[in-house]
Design a protein around this nucleic acid. Structure first.
Length: 288
DNA sequence: GCTCCAATAT
DNA sequence: AATATTGGAG
């Protein structure tokens, strides 16, 4: 019986893929134009391209004697580890900021991000770490600092205004945070709530993306904040989620405004290496 | 049953 | 260290 094929094929492919991905990691990558309201839209165009790699070593990963997972069995296949590039993280942070703590749950965030291939688990995992990061920060800032300038949140915690961002919109009365954050016009409905702040530099320590895309800070995340690698797809087909994604009708509440692509500082703020890293920390100028 | 979250595993 | 996976809880 052909059982062996259906079974070992994915299995072997898996093993291979893992190694391959570890080597040239060709995950997903794409850019995401401002989309919106998936509820009543058929054009749920997601399109962020996460591209951890872009080496020009070899470009063909879809033809390895059929060992590639890019075959038919889109299910039961293990997808490569998601790499949270600065761009992706940015998207994430923006989504969280715009949703507010209350709605900032994995599913919602995932929907808002509208990143193809992103699963709820991915977001959940990242969110967990993100929360931890925030918590840590709060604990640190609260002790020793007696600044009246600091913002005190409902939680009674004192946070640095420069980093409070997320929490700023958390305990706050979500008069407009619930959903439909964007009026369908501006990317940032209310930046002061937590939009810009969040983007400032809440960079949890993600590994160095020395190979993010072309260059460390030269190109890669070019001025437009997106990669310029039209090709490189690969990885996942569509609908990678074994579970159901955006219910289209199930939720219907998340207005989603589409987070505009912004630039973010790639280099670590600490300038660990050399110190020549000129973190521009471009603010999302979404202030207006 | 689904989602969240914290803990745990890779 | 960064993500994934698991298990309990709502």
């Amino acid at each position: 019986m052909p059982i062996s094929q259906s079974l070992i094929t994915p299995d072997l492919a898996l093993a291979f893929d893992i190694k391959l991905s570890a080597l040239h990691n060709h995950c997903l990558q794409e850019i995401h134009p401002p989309i919106h309201a998936p509820s009543s839209n058929h054009d749920v165009q997601k399109g962020i391209h996460l591209n951890p790699h872009n080496s020009s070593d070899f470009a063909d990963s879809s033809e390895l004697g059929g060992s590639g997972p890019s075959d038919e069995p889109a299910r039961t296949l293990k997808r490569p580890r998601l790499v949270w590039t600065p761009q992706l993280h940015k998207r994430f942070v923006d989504a969280v900021a715009h949703l507010g703590i209350k709605n900032a749950v994995p599913k919602t965030i995932m929907q808002l991000m509208s990143v193809d291939g992103l699963t709820r688990e991915n977001v959940a995992s990242h969110l967990q770490k993100y929360r931890l990061y925030l918590k840590r920060m709060q604990g640190l800032s609260s002790s020793g600092s007696v600044n009246g300038a600091l913002g005190i949140n409902g939680g009674g915690n004192v946070v640095d205004p420069a980093t409070d961002h997320l929490f700023a919109s958390g305990p706050m009365p979500p008069q407009f945070l619930p959903f439909v954050p964007v009026p369908a016009m501006h990317p940032y409905p209310h930046p002061r709530i937590g939009g810009s702040a969040a983007a400032v530099h809440p960079q949890m320590q993600m590994h160095n993306y020395r190979h993010v895309a072309g260059g460390p800070f030269s190109s890669g995340v070019a001025a437009d904040g997106q990669y310029d690698h039209p090709h490189h797809f690969l990885g996942r087909q569509l609908q990678p989620s074994p579970r159901h994604r955006v219910g289209g009708g199930g939720n219907g509440g998340i207005g989603v405004g589409g987070i505009p692509p912004f630039v973010e500082n790639l280099g670590s703020a600490d300038g660990s290496s050399g110190g020549n890293m000129k973190i521009l920390t471009l603010f999302p100028t979404g202030d207006d």
